[in-house]
Each structure stands twice: as structure tokens, then as C-alpha cells.
Design a protein around this nucleic acid. Sequence first.
DNA 1: CGAGCCGCCCGAATCGATTCGAGCGCCCGC
DNA 2: GCGGGCGCTCGAATCGATTCGGGCGGCTCG
Lengths: 356, 356
Amino acid sequence: MTARPTLADVAARAGVSASTASLAFSGSGPVSDATKERVLAAAAELGYAGPDPRARSLRRGRSGIVGVVLEERVRSAFLDPVKIRTLDGIADGIAPLGAALLLLPFIGGESEGATIEDAPVDAVVLIGCSPRVEHSLEILRRRGIPTVAIEGGPTGDDVPDISIDNRDATRRGAEHLRSLGHRDVGVVTLPFDAERTSGPVDAALEARASTQVTIERLQGARDVFPTAPAVAAATSSIEDGRLAALLLLADGSGRALPAEARPTAIIAQSDLLAAGVIHAAEELGLAVPGELSVVGFDGIRVDGLRHDLTTLDQPSTDKGRAAGEAVVRLLAGEPATSLAFTSTLHLGDTTAPPAR
Amino acid sequence: MTARPTLADVAARAGVSASTASLAFSGSGPVSDATKERVLAAAAELGYAGPDPRARSLRRGRSGIVGVVLEERVRSAFLDPVKIRTLDGIADGIAPLGAALLLLPFIGGESEGATIEDAPVDAVVLIGCSPRVEHSLEILRRRGIPTVAIEGGPTGDDVPDISIDNRDATRRGAEHLRSLGHRDVGVVTLPFDAERTSGPVDAALEARASTQVTIERLQGARDVFPTAPAVAAATSSIEDGRLAALLLLADGSGRALPAEARPTAIIAQSDLLAAGVIHAAEELGLAVPGELSVVGFDGIRVDGLRHDLTTLDQPSTDKGRAAGEAVVRLLAGEPATSLAFTSTLHLGDTTAPPAR
DNA sequence: CGAGCCGCCCGAATCGATTCGAGCGCCCGC
DNA sequence: GCGGGCGCTCGAATCGATTCGGGCGGCTCG
């Protein structure tokens, strides 16, 4: 017999009915020890590998899988330590469910296979703040799948959003710089739109911005330094942070601008970007924090960075865990509410009073 | 009506049978345009969100999901750029299937939910070379799930293994060092076992090693430098590479050993480790490559590293893609064979003749 | 000694979609 | 005018497990 044995085969061999065999496996029903043992023995003889998860999930109505929608390709999503921490938190939060995580590409791709339109998931977590959140929400709502967003911007009452105080936190970082005496401050921002336009931020770019987090953090900086020049990075990476910083600190030929023509401090919207800013400063021969103060955002430990970065420590893992817990509550039929975490300013060794 | 509508509801509303409605959705059968349109209209009115993936997968026998077993927790797995590239390659390779990736924790955990014992997957890719591969293979074999391993060590005829020439490649790197004149060479290795024991490598540790890749690469180094001292890192990370290198280069008080007491070159088993080695050298005031040559492995671009690392460029993405394509073949009923890729020595600026 | 209760097992319905073979008009050609 | 062929639709079986209500013994208590 080449076909895999089914529960019915096992039951027949054990001389019991399929229903009894099922009970014996799930262990929930009233089955005598003798019978259970006989069923398990029969299963072992036939090489039965347990109930087919597909059939079980059809009958039970649950698949034991939670989908995670990444706003980007797998490749880039996992280069971001914040996302990884968040994922880890989610895995932690849904642990009581014993569910696995299904990576779902953002929709709009041409893939004919599993997307949020058509994936056997019990619930979905949307990570990130892509412009597609609206579209995704609509599909999930129609499918009736419980959904939780992380930094999803305005969702609906039915979709809890887990976020942090992006604007307020950045403002506190900016105020720290102002209290040190800084007046000329530059900003290196996360991408503004799905096209990841990089370079100096102007009104046009701000107008078509679709990334909530970028805007909120920029507003926080502008609350304190209304005229701060900003440069957008293409991705949240060290290299793109370095490139963006060079636009603020160097002239076209790659030499440092004179002191009076460059900012004395840079607010980076992520720690990876901040690490790139520091690299750029070192490359230009500018001491950190002596000639340039740097503030980051995230509170990750950048592998290989030898500074104790002054940054806004956000609870990424907690955010993920909260999202996971919200999923658990939704699946239990309980209401789950949106939640905003607070970031704390960590004072490292990358900020100091300006030289001049 | 609060319950989600089913295909039968749609069919009833459209005045056709369920079978016809099904054909109208899948688009494969001979259905008149008028009927199809009527069905789709009825679906729209009822807010039908497409066929239930659970039921479909039960009937079709396929779920459209490919499992990926990570040897570690999600957290650590995704900190490794090689794994990320591999994952990306897998996603690429299985694209024709249009399948999503299900992250499966390694087994042995107490999680009651989805594991490889019980997950609705059509196929599985085992990444990494954990000692649990054997156990995983047994379960998957019993379940009759097509499986592909990546660096899985000895599998069976039924499980293709995608690997690279770890030993031979490392040997070529070592020969490059020897041809430059190096005689005293140290090795910084990947972890040896599941406990991630770190520190100097001795016979006892080698004896209980369970990680195939580590051993093969160490053998390659020993082929050229039989007595090379080796230090194991706890993880493949910059920081652990730095710590391991310090054991080879510095004394207990954190000062560089005299030139005659330390190696003139270090072979690191990954690029992240190599980056850490370079950091350690700079910290000790040793010039790279002047006073210390460094060879890495992987060929990734380490974010933030300002050297052009001499390394063994392995086709990580290709490996993943090959695994994905093997999955596609297995699912098509075709045989898939093991495959070994070749790494190429990339000559960067981190190797030079020894100073003495 | 009999009635009731309890523990254990079975039968049958159900989850929702897919698929195969059969049936039914209708048109065309002979 | 009639039979064959073709295009579309329907019924019913099927995928494999779960679950609920019922029934059948055996034991206990009055």
C-alpha cells in the first residue's frame, strides 16, 4: 500500500470505529486506556503519522497558522533588526496558540499562490506602514480574518494598532540636542514612499509621503527645529545612512563642509542610519560627538558599531509581543484595543555640546 | 447573516449548482461567459471572499505552503545574512508554485502547535546543519512529505542536499595565505554544537561536534595548516568574531600579544566573524592587512565594514534557489538530485604578505 | 432483585470545495 | 428528418478528520 494510511485505516486495524480512534489521538474524549493503547499500536504498525492537518483544519475551522504581512520583499524585511525583533515578539506573543508564522508577501504581486487573499490563516499581523495597508485591510475584513496592525497608521475600530510615540519621542531627542546648545540640526529620514526616493526632502516629497512613521518622526524633529534640513535614505541601512549624511556634511567632492555650513548634530530616524551617519563623520574626519552629535532611533545594538549611541529606545519586541497577544485575544473572541508604547531617550556617548 | 457565505450560498443565489460555481471560480472548466458573470456577481453581492483555502487544500491534497525549518529560533536565524539570502533564494525558486513560506521552529520544543510533525505543508526545506536533521528527516519521511536539505550533511537518496565545497574552498583560502608567506595562521570557527560552546577548540569539542559545516571548513584549513589553533565563536556575528579573535591576538589584559606569539593571519569561517576579527585587530592597533591578514567566508557585503574582505564567495542565493527548484521538481514527481556549488576566492584588501 | 446511572464506544452528520461522469439541449451534416 | 457531436451544467462522490447524540453493557444502591 503506497498511499498514506488514514485514520480510518488505523481504526479498522485496531478494531474500533474512526470516531473512537480520533478520540484516542486527541486524547480529549473518554476512551479506555486499553483501547487507546490498541489504537496507538495499530497506528505505529501502519506507520500512521498523525491526523492530516488539512482535514483537521477544515473540520475545526482553525489552521493554527498566523500570517505576517511584510511590506517588502523577504530579503529587505529581514535586514532590519527592528523587524526581526518585532517578529520575534510576535512569535512570543502567539506562543499560547502554538501557531506557526506564515510569511506573506505584500499583495499586488503577480504571485498566483498564497497571499492574504487566499491563505489558510487564522489571523494576520500587518507589519509596517505601507500605503497598501488600506487595501490589505479591506481584503482581510471581507474574509473575516482577525487582524492586528503594527504601526499601521489609522486603521478601524476592528483592527487594533500597536504603535509607539514616534513624534513625541523624536521631539524629546531633539530637545535633548537643543538643551546641549545645538541650533543647526539635520535629519536623516527613513524612506517616504514605496519608491524609496532618496535625497533631500522637499515639499513635493513630503506631500506624497505614504509612510506614517517617517512623517511622524520628522514632525517631532520639526517641533523643535522647524527649519531643519532633511535627507531621505533609500532604506534603513548603514550604507544608506552614510550616503544621506554625506549630503548634509560634505560638498560634492567628498570633503567636509566648513563648520559653519554644516549641522552640529544629526537626528537619524533609525539606529542603522545613525551608524551610517557616524561612519560618514569618521570618513570626513569629524569627531563624534566632538564635532558632530548623533541621535538615533530604535535602541538596537548595531553589530560592529563601537559607540554607545544616544537613541530613542523603542520596545520593538514588546510591540511584537503585544500584537501577538492581541491576536490571541481576538481569536478568543475578546476585544483587543490599540496600544501605544513609549520610547525612552537613552543617553549614550554620541551627543555633546556643539564645538562652536 | 453573520456567517461567511460559502460557495453553495453563492451558487444558490446565482441559480446554478455548486459544481458550476466552483468551475466559474477556478476558471478551468467549460463555463459559459454569461454563467460565470452571474456567479461572480452573486459572489460580489454576498461578499464572498473566494474559496476557503482549508477546504480547497483538503480536496486538492496540496496546501500551497512550503515549510522552512530553521535550526534556531527565529531571532537568531535572521541575524545571519547568509540565511536571509538563502531564504530569499528559496522564495525565488518556488515562485512557480506560488507558494508561501511557513516558518517552522525546530522540533523538540514543547509547542503544541504547528511543527513539522503537524503542519499543512506540501514540502519542507531544512536549512542548516543541526544535529536534529536526522530526527526531522525521520518525521518527514513518515509523513511522506518531500524534503530538501541545505547543508544537511548525509541525508538519504530520497532527500536532495544542496551544499557547497566547504572543505575545498577553505583549503583554497588557506593556500592563498600560504602562498603569501603565512605560516602561523589561526582559525575562528562557527559554533560546533547546539550548545554553542565558545572558546579554544580542543579534541573534546571536536569529538562532540555536530555541525557539519564547521567541521568541513576546519578540515580545509587544517589541510594546509595542520596545527593551526582554532577558537569557536558562539554565533556567527561580528561581536562574537571579535571576542574569538581577541583570544588569538591578545593576552588576558586586552593587550596585543608580541608579534612572534600571535598568528599573522586568521581564517574566519564567516564574513561576520571576519568583520569581528578586523575590529579586534584595529582595537589592538594591528593594521589589516599589514600586521594581520584576514580571510572570511560567504561573500556577503557586511553592512558598515569599510574593507574589501578577502573571502570565499559562496552562492547563497543560488543555493536557496536550487533548493526551491528541487522542491518544485519533487512536487512534480520528478527526481531531484543533490547538488554541490562551488565557492570562488575573492581577493580583497585584507590579505597581504606577513610583516616578518 | 430491579432501576438507574455511568463509562465507553459507535454511527452519522458536517466542514467547504473539487472533480468526474452523466445528462441534456441544440446545432449541423448527411 | 434523424443521428451524432459538442458545449454546458448538474449530481454525487470524495478528501480525512471531528463531534454530538445515542445506545449498550455493567455496576451500584435501594
